[in-house]
Amino acid sequence: MPKVIFVGSDGPEYTVDATVGDSVMAAAVKNGVPGIVAECGGNQSCATCHVWVREEFAPLVGPPGDMEDDLLDLAVAERRETSRLSCQIRLTRELDGITVDIPPEQP
């Protein structure tokens, strides 16, 4: 069971147990992690589940897809190198311990 660590913008950390195959967004929502709004429910049309993936996990997670890339450009206030929509990161065993930062505001 992979663990996911969410780091809130003002400091608090949330470590949650997630299920392989779930998205990082689903792991946050199921555990009530604040700051992951996920308004569209994982349909890649709102960008309110934006996270910054910590450097060490970025290569494992890979780059955003085409539509996700557009949304990150159009909607997100501060897009960084490792910005992803957490609904598009599928959890695997290799991603155990993945750490993501939650931006101070969602679109």
Partner: peptide, 8 residues
Amino acid sequence: MAVLRKDI
């Protein structure tokens, strides 16, 4: 709220 940034 979502999607298009004001500046865009």
